[in-house]
Design a protein around this nucleic acid. Sequence first.
DNA 1: ATAAAATAGTTGGCAAATATAACTATTATT
DNA 2: AATAATAGTTATATTTGCCAACTATTTTAT
Lengths: 169, 169
Amino acid sequence: MPTTTNYAKLSVGTKALILSKLYYSVLSKSLESLDIERYYSILFFLNENNGCNQQCICNNLAIDKTAMVKVIDYLIKVGFVDRNVNPDDRREHFIVLTKKGLKQTGEIVKAFEDIDREIFSSIPKEEQVIFNKVMCQLSSKLKELPANDLFFNYKQTAKKRKKVTASKV
Amino acid sequence: MPTTTNYAKLSVGTKALILSKLYYSVLSKSLESLDIERYYSILFFLNENNGCNQQCICNNLAIDKTAMVKVIDYLIKVGFVDRNVNPDDRREHFIVLTKKGLKQTGEIVKAFEDIDREIFSSIPKEEQVIFNKVMCQLSSKLKELPANDLFFNYKQTAKKRKKVTASKV
DNA sequence: ATAAAATAGTTGGCAAATATAACTATTATT
DNA sequence: AATAATAGTTATATTTGCCAACTATTTTAT
């Protein structure tokens, strides 16, 4: 039995996970010189959505909000972002890139875009379009199915309070 | 600013990561009744590749081999697999599903396949084919690019022994 | 207008995953 | 026979993921 079957029969969820691992491995290599070595996707998102609140980041990147607190704490500590209370709704905290954060984020965005451009370069445009469309549709479909509501505003109100087991690999 | 832009501009790596999170969240919900709540993708892989060695699982699922040791230890502890030394190459350990493991794995495979079937159901066959093809191509391309070689037999031999930073999100 | 519910964010803690170096045993290469 | 490579293991430290419980604020229902 060969140790590397060049594409094992796997679920689309598993294939997607592997793709993301390979992707972030390449990304972190190409950003070795930066003085931050994590949270690239969050900074990428902030570049397009500067000033959004924490929940917005969580919703869009499927990250737990309690984890997000620590991430933002870290990004503040290293001087990449500020956390500003929204005067019109004082529950919300706006996350805003600092001058330093903006500068470094520029490089991060470039690295992401370079990788995307590179790996899509040999794929016909119309196939890229279909690929992206299907990617969206699969995510939408999954959001409709019953899940362990980890992200997306899980409201823990009295009634449903059962053991919610992990969504691990 | 809406807290959920219904598809933010994101890299393909990030979209893939989100898809996988959504997927595993649904999967773990649908397998709540099983007496194992993790390592589904490994059991799925073993179902098709029963008796392969640990490195084979690592290579195909992009999992670090030191992590794999603990996973297999756990799967042995709960009676799902055995670890047998290959008499022809005593470095290798074959991982073999037990009777119990086979039975439970059947349900896991079914759950994976049900989800795949469900979420692909409304997508035209020819688009599915293109999607899968592109998925493979992207992974192949990524494997060619310089990466922090986390999986895939990283050989730590004297020469290259530099700080290899993380491939985190 | 007040009570109840929902939302945004926070804290602390534990289990799990990830990363890294150093290690044994075995086999392949020179 | 020496060296290198491969498969797997151990130990350790860090990070992440997940959950319960919490505060503060705003929205909804009565």
